[in-house]
């Protein structure tokens, strides 16, 4: 049966036309702008460096999806935990990880956030509550719920944000986890970063249930769709879900509609979508939106905008310098961090 691959994803539209009467503060907008710009520039540079073969492995860029992590980070508090799959560069950056250790990880250097052992798909930063960076689609859904299980067990009041792509929704792990997370009222926010494509396969081509927020209904999990190009909408949805989780009322499913401007990975020719589709989404770009709000409210002068731009450029530049000047891990590092047991007797042959 012929299946159309060109069906357009549902477009999201901004409800508010006036940007002046925002309920978010100047500081919040500036932070969103700065964080998202840093992610955008970090990722643009990462893409270029990858093409120049400065480092290998798979490389999945976050460009276009920045509003999700920006809005999530601003709605969460210290102690909350975050986990995602392998499109994981944006999350630690939004949570405050130094871009230098992330770039060093991409380069496979010993100064990387995972000591050069994880690479692009396995960023971790315990300090900011970022628990990976996981390579198997959907595995993080169950693990993230388990992180929440521990928070509830220890009565911390912390919540866990678990991100996944729209492709992961079809994994059995999600359905098993949703059932238990709801039954045990785990303090978890399940975030679908719905960019409408599981690699090259659109949502429509893998399911009859194209409204992913409906998936939660089978488990009576509070669920809703959110405009993922709007940090405001993401923040509000996360804050509401976090509030529910902290009160002991359990998990929430957020189908956050976004778009990745680039291919699935660096080797994706993107034949499954049209340039005009990409352009329609780029029109809603969250960074452009935040800069407009800031300008309309005269919260930053041109000079101050330039200073932010310079700061971002410098952060990325210094990250590359840091990575390139860092050593590769020595061979003996293979035997470190495999077991907590320092006496573990590895088999060593030729």
């Amino acid at each position: 049966m012929a299946v159309s691959t060109k069906k357009k994803p549902a477009k999201t539209t901004r409800k508010s036309t006036s940007m002046k009467s925002s309920k978010f503060s100047k500081e919040t907008y500036i932070k969103w702008y700065k964080d998202m710009l840093l992610i955008r520039k970090f990722e643009e540079k990462t893409g270029q460096l990858y093409i120049q073969q400065k480092f290998g492995g798979f490389c999945h860029l976050y460009i276009g999806q920045e509003a999700i992590v920006a809005g999530t980070a601003s709605a969460c508090i210290k102690g909350d935990k975050h986990m995602t799959a392998y499109r994981d560069h944006g999350h630690p950056l939004a949570l405050g990880t130094d871009p230098r250790v992330l770039m060093a990880e991409l380069y496979g250097r010993s100064t990387g956030c995972s000591k050069g052992k994880g690479g692009s798909m396995h960023f971790f930063d315990k300090e900011v509550g970022f628990m990976g960076g996981h390579g198997i689609v959907g595995a993080q859904i169950a693990m993230g719920a388990g992180v929440g299980f521990a928070e509830k067990y220890n009565e911390t009041g912390n919540v866990v944000c678990v991100s996944m792509g729209d492709g992961a929704v079809r994994q059995g792990a999600l359905h098993e986890t949703f059932n238990m997370a709801m039954m045990w009222k785990l303090p978890v926010i399940f975030i679908i970063e719905n960019n409408n494509y599981a690699m090259g396969t659109s949502v429509e081509r893998t399911t009859n249930v194209v409204d992913l927020s409906k998936i939660g209904h089978s488990y009576e999990m509070p669920s809703k769709s959110v405009n993922g190009m709007s940090p405001e909408a993401v923040h509000e949805a996360i804050a509401e879900a976090a509030d529910r989780a902290r009160k002991g009322d359990g998990p929430t499913l957020l189908d956050i509609k976004t778009y990745r401007y680039k291919g699935h990975s660096m080797s994706d020719p993107q034949k499954y979508r049209t340039k005009s589709e990409v352009a329609e989404w780029v029109e809603q770009d969250p960074i452009t939106h935040c800069s407009k709000v800031i300008k309309e409210n005269k919260w930053l002068s041109e000079k101050e905008f330039e200073a932010i731009s310079d700061w971002v450029k410098n952060e990325v530049k210094e990250s590359i310098e840091f990575a390139e000047n860092s050593p590769y891990p020595e061979g003996k590092e293979l035997y470190e961090d495999v077991y907590m047991d320092k006496e573990y007797p590895f088999i060593v042959e030729y």
Binding site: A145, G146, Y153, E176, M180
Partner: peptide, 21 residues
């Protein structure tokens, strides 16, 4: 007691072990 969902409850236990249990 867990439902019959080995992948799910094992994943939940693994995540819990990452977070102090």
């Amino acid at each position: 007691d867990t439902p019959i969902a080995e992948l799910g409850f094992t994943g939940i236990a693994v995540g819990a072990s990452m977070n102090g249990l």
